[in-house]
Amino acid sequence: MLLYIDGLADPDHVQHLSRMIQSLRIDAIYDINTLVQYIHPSPFSAIPQILTSMRPDLIASKLVDGKVIGVLDGSPHVFSTPTSFFEFFSSPDDHYQTWMVSFP
């Protein structure tokens, strides 16, 4: 299932992602990380372009930021796309702590 907020997420990205998932010709996918390997736009890139997480607060913030979220029944992980390089260097805990604790 793809989740996004209409008006915030790029509709072209939603359609492209939906087409990519529907075009997969595999028997079963049991985990979101396996699905990400199939839909990753640049499989040979050193920088990941799809973020996976188990944190509901992080994923909720990604929805509000206009990202597209992928959820798979039975998998504890979800994915968020598109991402930027800098998203992999921030922690959701940074938003819950004072700046002196979260930004040393």
Score class of each variant (00 low, 15 high):
I29M: 11
S53Q: 05
L24N: 11
M1I: 12
S75N: 07
G7I: 03
R19C: 10
I32P: 04
F88C: 02
Q49P: 00
L72S: 06
V78A: 09
T52K: 05
P76C: 08
S18A: 10
K67C: 08
M20T: 15
P41Q: 09
L2T: 10
S23C: 03
S61W: 02
P76H: 07
I5M: 00
S102L: 00
L35C: 13
P48M: 04
D27V: 08
Q37D: 13
A60M: 09
M100I: 11
L72W: 10
D31L: 00
L3I: 08
S42C: 07
A60D: 12
T52R: 00
Q22W: 07
I5G: 03
L24F: 11
Q22H: 08
L35E: 12
V68M: 00
S84V: 12
L2H: 10
S45W: 07
P56I: 13
S45I: 06
I39R: 05
N33T: 15
I59T: 14
G70C: 06
H95A: 15
Q15P: 00
S42K: 11
F88H: 03
L58R: 05
Y38A: 07
R25T: 14
L2R: 13
Q37E: 14
P82Q: 04
V101I: 11
P11L: 03
M1Q: 15
Q97Y: 10
K62V: 11
S102H: 01
I21M: 12
F86C: 09
R19Q: 14
Q15R: 13
D73C: 01
V64T: 15
V14D: 00
I39P: 03
A60T: 09
T83G: 03
T83C: 07
L17E: 10
Q15C: 07
I21Y: 08
L17P: 02
F88P: 00
P56F: 06
M1K: 13
V36N: 08
S18D: 12
D73K: 12
R55D: 15
I29T: 11
L17G: 06
Q22V: 02
L51K: 01
F89G: 14
P11G: 05
S45M: 06
I39S: 02
S61P: 03
D10F: 03
Q97K: 11
M54C: 09
I26L: 11
S42Q: 14
R55L: 15
R19K: 12
S80R: 00
D73V: 06
D12W: 13
P76Q: 10
I69D: 01
V71R: 14
T34L: 10
P48L: 07
L3V: 08
V14L: 00
P76M: 07
G74I: 12
K67F: 01
S53L: 04
P11A: 06
Q49N: 13
F88R: 01
P11S: 09
Q22R: 14
F88V: 04
D93P: 08
I5P: 10
K67T: 01
I26Q: 12
L63K: 04
L51V: 02
P43K: 05
S90N: 13
I21E: 03
T52W: 05
D31P: 05
S23V: 07
D93H: 10
